[in-house]
């Protein structure tokens, strides 16, 4: 027991530095992917067919292919099409794509939940389509989507562990590295699991609380 604790104490700084990388990659993927998801949610409703189809393809591939494949595609595949990305760059590119694809569905559902009367009121007041979206529909739709988006953000932090496969020095890579050096796999992986849980459990509870609060607000 004591041996484990001192081993954990020794390894913790390294794992924490890995966790910072995990959080960075997640934050970047969300910062890029969610706005793109909003754009995609609007474009799939576009009346311009080619635009709608391209968006649909981007979304369906992003949702349909495993994130692990997208990560490797970005890291190993892109260099031979002339675009060399670092493992951080590939990770952000691939996870942003995934984020865009999933959040576009979440946001689309949020936008659809905005009552029809809202856009009709905006229209009769003379607001342009863009203004109606910007000031009336999108703010309300995003509010509806917020709990699901937060829940997705937690899943994204978990998905960042897949970047292990493209040599990004995030939490799991660090743990695995220490495991290979010390052969104390069980202990180091448990510590990594604890660290993930230490973020995800409070975050999940927080999201649930927000959801309940919003639910009450609406009622």
């Amino acid at each position: 027991m004591n041996a484990t604790l001192s081993f954990w104490a020794e390894s913790l700084p390294s794992l924490i530095s890995g966790m910072v990388v995990s959080l960075e990659v997640t934050a970047a993927a969300l910062a890029i992917g969610v706005p793109l998801g909003l754009v995609a949610a609007l474009l799939v409703q576009s009346t311009v067919r080619p635009l709608r189809w391209v968006t649909l393809a981007v979304v369906e591939i992003g949702r349909g292919a495993p994130a692990l494949i997208l990560l490797q595609l970005a890291y190993y595949g892109l260099p031979y099409s002339g675009l060399q990305l670092s493992s951080m760059g590939s990770a952000i590119a691939a996870l942003s794509w995934t984020t865009c694809a999933y959040t576009s569905e979440i946001i689309r559902a949020g936008l659809q939940a905005v009552p029809r009367g809202q856009s009709e009121a905006a229209m009769t007041l003379g607001l342009s389509r863009l203004d109606a979206l910007r000031f009336v529909i999108v703010p309300q739709g995003m509010r509806v989507a917020a709990p699901a988006l937060l829940g997705f953000a937690i899943l994204m932090l978990q998905a960042s562990s897949l970047c292990f496969a493209i040599a990004l020095p995030e939490l799991l890579s660090k743990a695995q590295l220490i495991g290979t050096m010390t052969f104390r796999y069980m202990e180091i992986l448990l510590l990594a699991a604890l660290l993930y849980a230490a973020i995800c459990i409070p975050a999940t509870l927080l999201v649930a609380a927000i959801e309940r609060r919003l639910g009450k607000h609406a009622a």
Binding site: L172, A175, G179, M186, L189, L190, A192, Y196, A197, C200
Partner: peptide, 19 residues
């Protein structure tokens, strides 16, 4: 649900499996 699936797989395969 709070630990990524890949971590569970590693725990089973490398953790339990190695010891």
């Amino acid at each position: 649900r709070s630990v990524p699936p890949i971590v569970w797989i590693f725990i089973l395969y490398f953790g339990i499996g190695s010891g």
